[in-house]
Write a protein that binds this DNA or RNA. Sequence first.
DNA 1: GTGAAAGCGCTAACAA
DNA 2: TTGTTAGCGCTTTCAC
Lengths: 352, 352
Amino acid sequence: MDEEADAASRRPATIGDVARLAGVATSTVSRALTVPGRVSEATRKRVVAAAAELSYVPSSHARSLVSGTTRTVALLVPDIANPFYFGLIRGAQRQLRAAGYAQLLVDTEESAEIEADTVDLMRKSADGVILAASRLDERQLATLAQRQPIVTVNRDVPGVPSVILDTPDGARQALLHLRSLGHRRIVYVGGPADSWSSARRWQALQATAAALDVDLQQSGPWMPHAEAGATAADAVVGTATACIVFNDVLAFGMLRRLRERGVRVPEDLSIVGCDDVFGADFCDPPLTTIAAPIEEAGRVAVTMLLDTIAGTGSGRTRAILPTYLRARRSSGPAADGHPAPVSRTAPSGRGS
Amino acid sequence: MDEEADAASRRPATIGDVARLAGVATSTVSRALTVPGRVSEATRKRVVAAAAELSYVPSSHARSLVSGTTRTVALLVPDIANPFYFGLIRGAQRQLRAAGYAQLLVDTEESAEIEADTVDLMRKSADGVILAASRLDERQLATLAQRQPIVTVNRDVPGVPSVILDTPDGARQALLHLRSLGHRRIVYVGGPADSWSSARRWQALQATAAALDVDLQQSGPWMPHAEAGATAADAVVGTATACIVFNDVLAFGMLRRLRERGVRVPEDLSIVGCDDVFGADFCDPPLTTIAAPIEEAGRVAVTMLLDTIAGTGSGRTRAILPTYLRARRSSGPAADGHPAPVSRTAPSGRGS
DNA sequence: GTGAAAGCGCTAACAA
DNA sequence: TTGTTAGCGCTTTCAC
């Protein structure tokens, strides 16, 4: 049994093994493999050949130890199974791969505690953290952001770089859309109590409703799961002719319940969701929804984070991504409604 | 400006900082924080207090360097945006968290090359790798598995521990189901050319069809995306009265196309999908599908991998998880068909 | 252009 | 029970 040849395939080769095989010092191997022109072409070739033969892969941990950097970014999402986050995850991963970074994905299970603990843990294991729909309060977020590079998605806290999907504007568009279809009694089916996005949307809706002669109510809070949709649907039926729902997943649950109860969509109740997630175009009926460029949000978040890490912070600390209403079959004319003239600019001010 | 107090919040505290503050040696800190009874209660308290004050988090990298272990497991999936993998990811993450492991999630973008490269990279950054629906060939897989702990999901290669969802059996159930509804011309809408699962299902179907007096054809290969469903649908229409589709996502795309073309489901064409993913129960019409315990698969894969890593390999190297047919509206009686008596045991042998 | 040596933060002998 | 020391694999001075 040839010990030499065998050792390589058993125990991962170290820089020392490569050095020995190439007949050089470890420092030379390091240079040959990382710094371009710091070593003679001849040695470089020998080293590269040796590394290949031993299928040498540098230990990222050893590297991190000395460099203090990990080439890893953590992405924290409240619920991996929520299709809203797919695009985010994928957009982030693409951008990270391109930059030579690894992605540490963590499902915080919608718990502020798990989230805080994880962020703390990541202080050592990741160069930075992306927080999607954070459940933490402003103070915590601000404090954490001082300790380590953080970018939030859909959460705006002073001093913390963030990527915001402009769903309040989308909600405004939805309200105008429904009003133009003749709806005057509209319910906002809200998300979790601690959801910053949901609160902002509700504010935007209220401001717009006042000027539109719309009777707007809020229902909830509801967890953003399909299961919660059943109860949410029951709460809405009879109280309004249309509703704007916190997100598509919740709306899916409502759709199912309404079908069970024989409530027709959109004839008896119009529904507008949010996010345009996987499934919104083939559910029954297809869901009118506020579409957001979520994959782009992932890319932008990574770019901002990497800037922060590199200290290249060009100052851009807040990206707002536009959303738009994608009308499908789940919204239609109100049975007894009088349409209103519509302009894309909400009466309450603020254009697109 | 108080340098002492400040230093802690600026630069993450090391074990040395804690030792100094507690007035002990670093090794004592290490012991106090990791080995339960190896230190006096009094010192332990002092150390813990000091650590808390400095909000000390051990460097996982330094730890890895000395222990040779990373407490990290990599999960490679071909396409993060495919809802099939949600359950897997979540099941894996739950089990990993419970064991104190971190999860490194990588989207290999359905590329064998990215997959192979990543597995190689992970040799140093993860203690083991879970490969979902691997695109690698048997030889590569076997070689890699010799170098590092690997568990595959839905891929069986001798010498590589694996978790298999018994979808061939599910496909058999689907065929019986369709036959009992009177269908005799059935198409299997196949997955990617290099998909091991798809090949196995096709084999199982052929074996069963022979004994059932069913005219079974294969269509494809198709990429498992909704977009491919349009072409797949066009290829099937008119050639059969029912089809069994590689997975739900592809079936969703078919459903949409069929609606556009005015082909009624199930009256003109019955459809059976596979995986029972998010959306299968609220698409239009709801999809009859082969349901698989995918979240459990994630958990089991982690357990097997952790066993392999620990060397506790109790010998169980292959877990087969049963699947079952979940009938919904997308499958119905054949317009011109003659039902067949049904037994849950396929004529070709092999029970449940 | 290359080698020797120190040290990143931690754990695991080995002493005391 | 605790401290001292060596060393994990790598990069980075500092010499030569």
